[in-house]
Amino acid sequence: MLPLPTLTQERENHWLDRFDPRLRLLCALLFALTTVSLQQIPLLLGCLLTGLLLAWQSGLRAGPLARRLLLLESLMLLLLLTLPFTVAGETWFSIGPLNASGEGLQRALQILLRANAIVLVLLSLVGTLEPVTLGHALGQLGMPRKLVHLFLLSVRYIGVLFQEYRRLRMAMRARAFVAGSNRHTWRSFGWLLGMLLVRSLERSQRVLRAMKCRGFHDRLYLLSENRWHSRDSLTLLLVALGCTYLLILERTL
């Protein structure tokens, strides 16, 4: 199985799954594009709220979600601490020779809100898709075939390689290996990685041979079951209208 914990519980007939995966991708894209072009803090707050609402409604589990957001927030903290001092503008307060500007603070807040809103929407709309479904949707949206297949093959074999890693690691532990900060540890990890690379290479050769046995001649196929319904078109229209409305508000407020 995949090494990452899944974001959602096993679910059936969730309302999100009734929509075409392509719609979910397109909506996430529209939302992201709109959010990055907004400047007004109240509008960005609205975007964040949308993200939160969506995350709640799509049934994301709080634990894994918080862990992923925490990664983002650590980067955001860096911005919050540095931007006020590096953007020129009216002085807000000063520490010694350093002047913090109000403009800098505002810039930092904008980035904080935007990033969180977009990540939340991506996680709830795209992150909840089965990786294989995501690959198919990308293929149907006309993304380059080679990239889509690379993505799908990665999805297929990442688990196999992870199992191999786990077996090797277990075998090391079974022989009383404890990681420390010494030469022996580094050398052993080097061998572990090297062995994984060699095994992956060998596996890829075996996979290619198996593909040749089934008549592979440089073409891969995708069979997609996704159907675009009228409700998908309607939703896309509504989302597009919403985004346009936000952009108009941004100009006129």
Partner: peptide
């Protein structure tokens, strides 16, 4: 079988 099955579904 992991060598042989390489497609998503």
């Amino acid at each position: 079988a992991d060598d042989q099955l390489f497609c998503p579904t």
